[in-house]
Structures are given as structure tokens and as C-alpha cells.
């Protein structure tokens, strides 16, 4: 069973266009709703625990397809969170950033892809692995829009 909670999203105010050449502007009646406006709904605040430590990155390739992370998606990466077993992280391997699931198996730590076509990477003991940040959210486009266009323009 799915629980779907509908959150009322305040509509963004219409872009205000100032009449450039008109001499005088009459303001009209104030909207009766302005008193009830509780401030606009800010996704950043809702989603990101540390907005100033959160960076958006883009996904290339399908190594995490099994974790619903696909090419072209945006990831919100929190640099402040401490990475732990089970987190999906952005890690630096040989100087390159890669997104994988961090897993501990017994005494060993692994960077696990979520796609059988890719090989797991074992973190050698003593190897100083640099965790760039912890992935907190995925932005995946369901109706082709800007992200899809961007992905197509890259290919």
C-alpha cells in the first residue's frame, strides 16, 4: 500500500512585467489572498539539511541504474554528512569522482555499483579513500525537459 501525501505547493507568483512606456500605473485592488500568504514553498529548505554544504552534480553512465540513478540525473551531494555503510557516496578514485554505494563486508569496505555490468571496487586497507560527499537526493526527469535536453546535447 502506498501512502501518498499531497503537499499543497504555493503557486509561484506571475512574473511582474512593468509597463516600460506607460506614464502612470494604477495599482488596483489588493488581492484578498495576500494576507494569507505564508511565504513561498522552498524546496531547498525542505530537502537539503545543509544547503551551504550541498552541491549538485550530474550523473554520467549507468553504473548505478539499479539504485534508480541514471545518466543525466542530478544528485544532491552533502559534503558535511559523514559517510557510513549503505550510503550512496561520491568518492574520489584515482583522481576521478565516481558515485557508488559504500558497503562494509566483514572487515573490508567496498564501493559497490548497482549494475551487474560494473565491477565492485575494494578499498585496500591503508588506502586513503577520499569521500567527496554523501548523496542525499536524486533529481530524475520523468517528462523530458531541460535535463534530458542537456543529456542529448552532450552525446
Amino acid at each position: 500500500m502506498y501512502d501518498v501525501l499531497l503537499i499543497p505547493v504555493q503557486e509561484a507568483p506571475l512574473p511582474t512585467c512593468l509597463p516600460v512606456f506607460s506614464y502612470r500605473v494604477t495599482a488596483g485592488f489588493p488581492s484578498p489572498a495576500t494576507d494569507e500568504l505564508e511565504g513561498l514553498f522552498d524546496l531547498n529548505r525542505l530537502l537539503f539539511r545543509h544547503p551551504d554544504a550541498t552541491y549538485l552534480v550530474r550523473v554520467m553512465g549507468e553504473s548505478m541504474a539499479g539504485a534508480e540513478i541514471h545518466a543525466g540525473d542530478l544528485l544532491a551531494v552533502d559534503k558535511h554528512l559523514e559517510a557510513d555503510h549503505g550510503h550512496i557516496v561520491v568518492a574520489v578514485v584515482d583522481g576521478d569522482c565516481t558515485v557508488k554505494r559504500l558497503e562494509r563486508k566483514g572487515d573490508t569496505w567496498w564501493l559497490m555499483p548497482a549494475n551487474p555490468a560494473f565491477r565492485p571496487y575494494q578499498i585496500q586497507t591503508g588506502e586513503e579513500l577520499h569521500i567527496w560527499g554523501v548523496v542525499t537526493h536524486v533529481v530524475h526527469e520523468l517528462i523530458p525537459g531541460k535535463l534530458t535536453a542537456l543529456l542529448l546535447s552532450r552525446d
Binding site: Y55, L56, V57, R58, V59, L74, V90
Partner: peptide
Amino acid sequence: AYTTRLEDLLTVS
């Protein structure tokens, strides 16, 4: 502009 432009975001594979 890694942090401020959609087209310029850091890419991870």
C-alpha cells in the same frame, strides 16, 4: 562554473 550553472555541474560516473 561547477556550482552555479546547470550546464557546468561536476559530472560523476
